[in-house]
Each structure stands twice: as structure tokens, then as C-alpha cells.
Design a protein around this nucleic acid. Sequence first.
DNA 1: AATGAATGAGGGTTCATTCAT
DNA 2: CATGAATGAACCCTCATTCAT
Lengths: 185, 185, 185, 185
Amino acid sequence: MRAAIAVIAEAGYLKASFSRIAKHAGLSSTGMISYHFAGKDDLLAACVTEIEEITGAFMQPRIDAAVGHVAQLRAFVEANVELVGEHATELRALIDLVKNAGSRSDAVDGRLALFEEHFRTGQAAGVFGAFDVRITALALTTGLDAVVATAAANPPEPAELTRIGRELADLYVRATAPGSAGGTA
Amino acid sequence: MRAAIAVIAEAGYLKASFSRIAKHAGLSSTGMISYHFAGKDDLLAACVTEIEEITGAFMQPRIDAAVGHVAQLRAFVEANVELVGEHATELRALIDLVKNAGSRSDAVDGRLALFEEHFRTGQAAGVFGAFDVRITALALTTGLDAVVATAAANPPEPAELTRIGRELADLYVRATAPGSAGGTA
Amino acid sequence: MRAAIAVIAEAGYLKASFSRIAKHAGLSSTGMISYHFAGKDDLLAACVTEIEEITGAFMQPRIDAAVGHVAQLRAFVEANVELVGEHATELRALIDLVKNAGSRSDAVDGRLALFEEHFRTGQAAGVFGAFDVRITALALTTGLDAVVATAAANPPEPAELTRIGRELADLYVRATAPGSAGGTA
Amino acid sequence: MRAAIAVIAEAGYLKASFSRIAKHAGLSSTGMISYHFAGKDDLLAACVTEIEEITGAFMQPRIDAAVGHVAQLRAFVEANVELVGEHATELRALIDLVKNAGSRSDAVDGRLALFEEHFRTGQAAGVFGAFDVRITALALTTGLDAVVATAAANPPEPAELTRIGRELADLYVRATAPGSAGGTA
DNA sequence: AATGAATGAGGGTTCATTCAT
DNA sequence: CATGAATGAACCCTCATTCAT
């Protein structure tokens, strides 16, 4: 399964065939994969779960440590970007998996809903502007993914990573801030 | 080639095989496709070009009509979202193609560079904040794509489309505006 | 498709894989079979149809030439056995296909129904005894198949074939004749 | 081994893989099956033997109780059909095994030889007609199998079972009776 | 007696591509 | 411009068998 993740990260979802995974795992045939997993979907779902545990273990504490809706948004973004420093491979795989989801996308929908809810309660608390939460959540989560994916493609140094995270967080904080924004001109 | 676009939009990049495209085009064999196009990459590249001409014809005038960096940013976003009303199929195909680009992505890189340059000159003119142009361009273009893709998946009414475009443009204008940005809290 | 029939006849239904059929047909890969037929079931159904046309062309005239229910029963049995002389391969294949039917068995059910109906009208005409038509039809058709299959396995000389047909027809005529039947001792 | 019989009866010979049998037996691996049996043929042969002991225990006494060749033929047929009431599963499996015999068919050949010999001695005793014993034995045994198989597929009530047995026995007694049968018309 | 992992072969199917017609 | 047949590779999956533990 580590092999599957590695192959997806390196060769991409499309090329992640059982053959390639088996070879990468040092197996002589694809039979063993079918033996351990009910099918390709099963394997991929297992990968998603595994990776999410890893990323969750990294990100959750940092998010919980933040106080207030804005700080938590910032923490989420920064933690996600910093994650590239420690789990670039897993992130590359995860993003590719999520992109070609089709069905296995409980995760992605979950995060979207989480953002929406976060924005909604933040708006009620007056710390976010009066934007459409669905559209905003969608745009910002996918934008975040793209930045993470790009960073994970060839990971920069930690300092640069921190800078990217802060830049993006700034961007998102600005975008969601209340105040005198967005007249038609 | 219209058939190819239709198939990609309906069945997705992954399932867009020559057989399926041929059937959709009323051809009884895949031979003709190989005859007209050098290979699969060639066909897909041609599709991208074709679609871009269509979208360009729609968007370019609206962008050109806008005056000033901010208004042009807004025009780009709104035009792109409104495009869903007239070319949902093409947009679905294009976004799927771009997602699974790999190589054919001159287009995507082009748009990214365009955004970066737009931000840079806007910053020089003092109408945008001092953000990192690369990160911002990346996050905003992909976020835009996601919103467009979601809208194109099952297109809403024109009025709703206009609203979505304005919401997203507002978000992006806020995100790129100069001023009192992103303190750590 | 002739290859498929030949392989089924020689190697049996179980071993009739696409590989074997392709090799026997002089094809270099199994792809062509999947190209011409929607699936294995499709191929096998086509074989059944093909064989039934062949056997029908041989048997039907002889059955039609017979007058009366008893003579027609005899004609059917004898024609079926004589068929071995000219189409042993096809018969072997057909019987193997029918044995492992599962679904494709319109044919087998058809013949069974035909026998039942023939017995029923014959009983009404008073030329057959008062036996249960379903049980009788079932037992006699499968018995016929077994004799044909055995003969087809290594076909005897025409004269012997004729003898076998007459013997079996005699047996069936006796079995279905009206009169002093089956006391418990 | 009981598991093997059950699986063959339910899923059919074709689908009776070691995996399925192991699962049905509550084993977590197929290893144990290969450990206990030399191979698949060995397992299947063992199943045949096992089932034949069961059926023999039921049928033999009833056959022995009958006096005279005709009565014994009747007893065999009726006992075999009645067996469905008590061992439908085993019968389904046995018939499937015998159908796809290939090699393991000592049993089936044995029964055939037994019938032939029974007919021969009966003919010598003058209680059977002058038919060809081989052809007759073949047709009647397979016909019997088909009726049993159909009954075993979804077993009817005991009374109906008795009726079927008697009907079939009547048929066979008639078919083998001596006398003025089978002129060419 | 039982497990779990591994193997190697074979299964049917789909694909992009080629080519004579 | 179009067809239809053919190729060779890759795909996911199932199988019987083996073996260390």
C-alpha cells in the first residue's frame, strides 16, 4: 500500500496500474494485490484513508491550537502547505486521487462542507464578510490544493514553504474579511 | 472533433477512447481518427485549441471592454462563469483536459503567466496589494476552474450564473486589493 | 466462429478459452474475438445459433417427410443420430454448449417444449400412452443427447449409425406406445 | 469436504474454486485444502466417493428388496428419484461432477456397465426385449439423471416425487419390455 | 491443523494503432 | 473519406498451488 501511494505520486493516477504497483512493491505478480484488496477501488480507497490519517495527525493539532475563525482558517492553510515538507509524496498521491475521485470522494466533500460550516459560523460571529459560503469554500479549497500540489511536485526548502503558506493564508484572510469590498467597479 | 469534445464532456477524459468517440461521431471504425490525427495527444491538443478559440471569442471582447486592472480581473472571472451558459459542454471538456494535461498544457501555463503578468503590472500601478503573484495566480485560476467546472456540471439559470460570477469576482477583488492585509491574527 | 465450434468440440466447453480459439483461428491475439463479439456469452450464443441452423437444415426435411406422431418421433431420433455422420464436430460442440448452458438455453427449452407438445397432441390422437409428458420429454431428449454425444465422440460407420438410430427410435416408440403399461411388478 | 459438496451444489462445478470452498468451510485460506488433498482432482474424486456412499446406503437396500429384473429396474429408478427428498444437495453436486467428469468417471462407467449387464441377464431370462443393451443403458441412465437433476434443482413434495419416480419407472419398463414393438412404421 | 503471504499462469476485455480494401 | 479486420500491449481479476510460520 505504501507502494501504491508511491506509484500514484510518481506516475500519476492514470498510470497507477496493478502491474506498476506490484513491481514497485517487489511483488512478482499482480495477484497479491487482488488478494489483499477487493478491487482497484478498494485499494485506492484504502490509500485515501491511510493518507488522511497521516495528514490529519499533522494538521489537526495545529488547527486546534488556533483560536478564532480567522486564525483557524490561517492555521489550516499554513499547516496544509507545511505538510509538504514532511509528506510530499503522500500529498501528491492524495491530490491526484481526489482529482480523479468519481466516487471515493467522501473526503473531499467532507472538507468542503467543513469549510462552508466554518465560514457560516464565522459570518455569524461577524469575523467573515457576507460572501456566498459555497462558492468561496469551493474556490479556496481547490486553490489551496493547487498550491499544495505545485509545491509537492518539487518541494522547496522549509523556509520557502513557510513563506508560501503565509502568503496563501494572507490571501484567504483578505478574501474572506468583512468590510468595504466588492462594489461592481 | 466535436464528437471528441462531447465525449470528453460526458464520459470524462478517462473514458474518452477512440471507440467511444468514433461511435459518437457516427463512424463505424476508429481508423478515421488515427487517419486525421497523428495520435491521441494530437487529437486532444486539437480539441483544446478548438475550445479555446470558442471561449476566447466569447471572453476576449468582454475583457477588452473593461478598463483598469481590477475591472479586467473582474471581467475575466465573470465572463468565464457566464460562459457556462453558452458552452457548458466545451467547458466541461476543457477543464477535464487541462486537469489531465501532463504535457498539452501550453494553454494552462499561458493563462497562469497572463495572470501573473496582470498582477505584476497592477501592483506597479498600485491597484493590487503586495502579494506573491505566482502563488496568487495559481490559487485563483484553479479556484476559478473549480467553480466553473461545478457550474458546468449541471448549469444553473442565467441569473444564478451571473450571481456566481459576481460573487467570485468580489472574492478575487477583495483578495487582491491593497491595504491592511493579513496580520498573523 | 468455426474455430470456436471446433475448439469446443475438441477441448470441451471448460477449456474453450479465447486464447485457444484465437490460436485455432490463426489469430495472434484474443482482441479480435472481443472485437467481433460483445463477450463470451455472445460468442457462445452465436455458435449455438449457427449450429442449430446447420442441424435444422438437415433434420427438418426428414421430420416433415414423416407422417403421423409416431413416425415423426422416429424421424426426429433417427435424423439426429444420422446427423453425426455429417456434422460430428458441430454436434459435439452443441451438446457441450447445451450441457453448460446456464442461460443461453432457449434452444434446449424450445426442444423440450416441442417434445411435450408433440406428445400431448399425440396422446389426444390416441397414438401415445397416458404418460406424463414433461417427465417423458425430459428423459427422452437427454437420453437422445447422450447417445448422439457418445456417437459423435468417435463417429462409427454410416451403417452402424443407422442401426443406432433405429435402435433408439425403437426404444422411444416402445416407451411412448399406448397399451398395457407399468403395473407395479 | 461437506463444504465442497455444498459449494458444487450451489454454485456449480465451474465456480467451485478452492477459495469458495474454503470460505464455505470457515477456513481463512485455501492452503488447508491443498494440504489434505493432492489436488483438485483428488478432492473432487473424494467428493464423488463420499456421495456415492451416501446414495448407495439409501438405494442399495431398496434394490436388493426387489425381486426380478424388471422389479429391480423399477426399484433403481424409483429409489434414485426418491433420493432427491433426502439428499437433494448431494445429488445436485454428484450430477454436476459426473457431467464434467473427464476422467473421474469410474462411477458413471460403473453404473453404465451395471445397467448393461442387468439388461443382458434380463434378456437371457426373457423378461426384457431384444434391444441393444449399450444404447439402451446409455439413454436410460442419462435420462434418469436429467429427471433427478431437474427434481433436485428445486425439490418437490414427497408425494410428487413418488409420482415422478413411478412415471419414469413405468416409462423405462415399457421401453425395455419384450413383445411386438418397433416395426419401422 | 491452520494461517497468510506469495507465485505464475491464465482468464476476458479494452485500447491505440495499422493497413488493405 | 471510410470500412473492417488485425495486432500487441496493457488492463483487472481469479485460480491452484506452495511454503514458512
